[in-house]
Amino acid sequence: MKKISILVVDDMEAHRRRLERILKQEPDMECIGAASNGYEAVSLATQINPDIILMDIEMEHQSAGIQAAKQIHESLPHIKMIMLTVHKDDNIVFASFQSGIVDYLTKDASPFEITEAVREAYNDVSPIRPIVADKIRNEFQRLKKTEQSLMYVLQIISDLTKSELQILSLLCEGKTRREIAEIRSVEHDTIKKQISSLLKKFNAESTRQMVNGINDLKIFEIIKKIK
């Protein structure tokens, strides 16, 4: 029976040795190589062409594993990669899957979880882990909320006067009320009244809250692209 060939990638020798010991206990698996950084991982993957790569993320730099996985996936897409890391941050998880990996485990995973993940990856049946599923659900909820907020804000902006829109744009660029008054060649009190009117229309308690909300949605970037 053909054994599943595995490349282990981790900058800490103790972690590499642990994985090698775990894999050695499995009759259908063999560790055919070990790398301590992303550069070695890419080079070794090309040379030995493993079935599976167990990849750490943070090695010679914070996203070394992600960059290595991306390079390997581009040149050797048939190799299945599993991230085995301490990181649980949403952005890192999503960036990892964008690089071409098929599974994501934390380093406190049991030997059984690790070996099962290897078999599942080899057989193209890698599951969506609870940690990943939760992040996907949260991201969909965030996107839905952002979409609703975007439509709400765009509706308000479409009803603004040309003067109000310019003032709002200048506020979002970080300009102060006094600077806006100078740019528009009007009295400071006039700008103050117009900003108060904007706050009411956006139902915002402060200028900062209004500006942060609009900048988070990248409203004026969207408007510039439309124009």
Rank of each mutant, 00 (worst) to 15 (best):
F112H: 07
V153P: 08
S158I: 04
S5Y: 01
K88V: 10
S206E: 00
K107C: 07
Y152Q: 15
E182R: 12
L154N: 13
L160R: 04
G174C: 10
A204F: 01
D216R: 14
I57S: 01
I214W: 09
I136L: 15
A95H: 06
I72Y: 02
V211C: 09
I219K: 01
Y39N: 00
E173D: 14
I52F: 06
V9Y: 07
V153E: 12
D28A: 00
I79E: 06
A121C: 12
L217G: 09
T115S: 04
E147F: 12
E13K: 12
S36M: 08
I57L: 14
R142W: 10
K227F: 13
I180N: 03
S149Q: 15
N212E: 15
S96Q: 11
S99Q: 09
E179L: 06
K227W: 11
L154P: 02
P111L: 03
D56G: 01
H73T: 14
A14W: 00
Q62M: 14
R137P: 06
P111N: 02
K24F: 10
G65T: 04
V118Q: 04
L154T: 07
V118N: 10
D134G: 09
R178Q: 13
P127A: 09
E13I: 03
L23E: 01
N37D: 12
I6P: 00
E182L: 14
D159Y: 07
M59P: 05
V93C: 11
L168N: 01
V211A: 12
K3T: 09
M210D: 02
